[in-house]
Design a protein around this nucleic acid. Structure first.
Lengths: 337, 337
DNA sequence: GTAGAATATGGAACCGGTTCCATTTACTTA
DNA sequence: TAAGTAAATGGAACCGGTTCCATATTCTAC
C-alpha cells in the first residue's frame, strides 16, 4: 500500500539513485531535479521504510535500555531523562524491564548483538565478569548509568560517588549527635550485588570510623530492594535492646518502608528516630524525607549523550562521568531525643 | 562479522531455503538434513538478523506505546503491566513519551505507519477526530488504555467506568456527611481534553445531583495535571468564604498536592478536611490516601493481549473491556468536623 | 567549435532473510 | 522393475532501501 521509492522514481521519471540522493540531501542533484522529485514525494505522501533503510545501512537505529524499572523508582526518573535525550534523534528506544536475575541474563544475551541494537544503556543493575565478556565480544557500544565497579574500568559510565554520598548521609546524622546509626540496604552478599548499595555501605562505615565509632554488625541489615522488606527489617531493628536512634536507608524506596514501620510502632519521626534516604525521588519532597540527592533525570540525559558519542567514535577512550550528590535536609532527621 | 544464512548454507552444503526451513521449523526437511544444518548453526553461533527478517516478512515486530509517562504516575504502572505481557513475545516495545501536545501530534504522525510499527497502544492521552482519521487510514492495529470517548466507539479499548468511579468517590464523601465537596481536575475545556477527567467530573456531578445537591461551579477548579497546580488550586479553594469540607481530586497525583496545601494551611486531614484521590498508585498506600482503585498493572497487561489479538485477526470486531473500580478507604476521609 | 573537466544521473549489485515453483529424490504400489 | 506419488531441495525473485561506478550531460577554457 504505502508508496515505495520505485513509485516515486517512476512518477518523477528519474532513477532510484536520484530519489535516494534527494531523500538523503546529497549535493549531487540539480535543483530542478530535486524539486521535481520532492513534488512527487509530497504528492504520494511517501516516506522511506525504516526497516529497509536499516538493512541497507547496516544499522538498527535502535538503542536498548535494560532497567529494573519498577522496583526502583529512581530508575523511572533516569528513564525520563533518557526519553528526553532520545526524542528528536533517529533512534528508537526499546525498553527491557528486568525484575529477576534470569530475565537479566536473557536480556543481556539477546541484546549483545550488533544486528539487534546499535547501543545499550544498562541502569542500576548487577553486572558480572561473564556479562562483560559477552558485551566486549559483541563490540556493542555500552554505557552504564548508576553502575560502578572496578570490573567496569574499561566501560563508559555515568555515576555518582556513592561512597561519598553514603558518608554525607551518615555525617549529617553524626552532626546531629547520633552515634547509634542503623543501615538498611539490598543484599550485599549476592554473587552479583548491585554496586551502588555496597558503595553506600562503605560510605556508612567510613563516616562512622572517621568519627571514632566502630561499626556494629547488628546495625546493618539487608533484604530485597523493596519497601516491604525495609518495613520488616526496621521492625527487627526496633526490637533491639539498644535500638538505633537513626536509620540510613540505601534508597528512598527503602526509607519509605522505614518510615511506615517507625510510625506503626508509635514512634515520632524525627523526634524518636531519624530517617535518611538516598536518591531524592519525586515523592521524597512530599514526604519531607531527608535524603541524598542524585541528579536522576540528568543522569539519563547524559547517559544517552555519552552513548551517542561512543557510537559515533568507537575508538574513543572509555569515560566515566561522576555527577554530584547533595544532602537535602527536610523533616525526617533531628538530634536524638 | 556475524554469520549469515549464506555462511550456514555453504558450510552445511544445503540451499538457502533449507536453512530457512530449519530456522522456521518447517516439516518439509528430513531429520538428517535438519540435524546437519542445526549443527552448523550451533557451530557458527548463527542467529537470524531481525532486520532482514522483518523486511522479508513485511512485519516490524514492534509495538509502540504512546504515553504521558512521567506526568502521570498511574501511566507508569500501566506500562509495568505492558512490559510483563510483552516480555516473551517476539515484539520490541518502543516507548514514545509525550509531555506536550506538540509531541503528541508528532508521535501520532510518525507512528501511524505500517512500515513503522505493527501496533500501537495509546495510554491516558487526548485523541481527536483528526487523530482517528490518521490511524484509520493507516490500518494500524490500535488499542486504547484509559481513553474512553464516543469518538472511539470503533476502536479497541481497555477502560474503567470513570463516571461510576467518580460517583463512588463522591458517594463515599456524601455517606460521611459531606455536602460541600470540591473537585480538582485537569482542564476540561481544552480542544482535546483527556476523557477520563471529564467522566470523573460527570460522576462527581451525578452523585451530587442524586443526593439533591446542586453542583456549585465555584467548587470545581482545574489546572495542569500536576501536583503543583493542585496545590495552588487548593489554596484558592481554602480561601473561599464557604470552603469545602472535602475535596475529590481527579488523580492521586493531584490529591498529593491537595494534601500538601491543606497541611501547610495548618488544617488536619481528615478532621478538618477530607481528601480522596483516584487511581491507587503505589505510594497511595504509604500516604494512607483514600482513593478509587483502578487495576493499573492489569490494564496494561490486558491492553497488550487485546492488541496481539487484533494484530492476529484484523477483521475482529472492536472490543471494549471495562475493568472494575473499587473504593479504597484509608485515612484521608472522615465525617466533617 | 572542440577538448577536457566537472557535475548529474541511472541502475546493477548489495544488505540478509523468506517464499514459491521447478526439479530432484525417495518411497510405494502393481 | 517401472510408474506414479509424495517428500525434499535449490535457488531465483522478492522485500525496499543505499551505493558506487559507468555513462551522459553540462560547463569552462582555449
Amino acid at each position: 500500500m504505502p508508496a515505495t521509492i520505485r513509485d516515486v522514481a517512476k512518477k518523477a521519471g528519474v532513477g532510484l539513485g536520484t530519489v535516494s540522493r534527494v531523500l538523503n540531501q546529497s549535493p549531487q542533484v540539480s535543483d530542478r531535479t530535486r524539486q521535481r522529485v520532492q513534488d512527487v514525494i509530497d504528492e504520494l505522501d511517501y516516506s522511506p521504510n525504516p526497516i529497509a533503510r536499516r538493512l541497507s545501512l547496516g544499522k538498527t537505529h535502535t538503542i536498548a535500555v535494560i532497567i529494573p524499572f519498577f522496583t526502583r523508582p529512581a530508575a523511572v526518573e533516569r528513564l525520563r531523562g533518557i526519553t528526553y535525550s532520545i526524542s528528536g534523534t533517529e533512534y528508537d528506544l526499546i525498553v527491557a524491564n528486568i525484575e529477576t536475575p534470569e530475565r537479566r541474563i536473557a536480556a543481556f544475551r539477546e541484546l549483545a548483538r550488533r544486528e539487534r541494537v546499535d547501543g545499550v544503556l544498562i541502569i542500576s543493575l548487577p553486572f558480572s565478569e561473564k556479562d562483560a565478556e559477552l558485551f566486549i565480544k559483541s563490540g556493542i557500544p555500552l554505557v552504564f548509568i548508576d553502575v560502578n565497579d572496578p570490573l567496569l574500568h574499561d566501560f563508559n559510565r555515568i555515576v555518582v560517588d556513592d561512597i561519598e554520598g553514603g558518608r554525607k548521609a551518615v555525617q549529617h546524622l553524626l552532626d546531629l549527635g547520633h552515634t547509634n546509626i542503623g543501615y538498611i540496604s539490598d543484599v550485599l552478599e549476592d554473587p552479583f550485588p548491585f554496586s551502588a548499595s555496597r558503595a553506600r555501605f562503605n560510605g556508612y562505615r567510613q563516616a562512622l570510623e572517621a568519627a571514632g565509632i566502630s561499626p556494629c554488625p547488628e546495625l546493618h541489615r539487608h533484604g530485597e530492594h523493596s519497601r516491604s522488606d525495609a518495613k520488616i527489617i526496621t521492625a527487627e531493628m526496633l526490637r533491639m535492646p539498644d535500638r538505633p536512634t537513626a536509620i540510613f536507608a540505601a534508597s528512598d524506596t527503602q526509607a519509605i518502608g522505614v518510615l511506615e514501620t517507625v510510625r506503626e510502632a508509635g514512634l515520632r519521626i524525627p523526634e524518636d528516630l531519624s530517617v535518611i534516604g538516598y536518591d531524592d525521588v519525586e515523592i521524597a519532597d512530599h514526604l519531607g524525607l531527608t535524603t541524598v540527592r542524585q541528579l536522576l533525570v540528568e543522569s539519563g540525559e547524559k547517559g544517552v549523550r555519552l552513548l551517542l558519542e561512543v557510537m559515533q567514535d568507537p575508538l574513543r577512550e572509555a569515560e566515566c562521568e561522576t555527577l554530584p550528590t547533595e544532602l537535602i535536609i527536610r523533616n525526617t532527621t533531628a538530634p536524638p531525643g
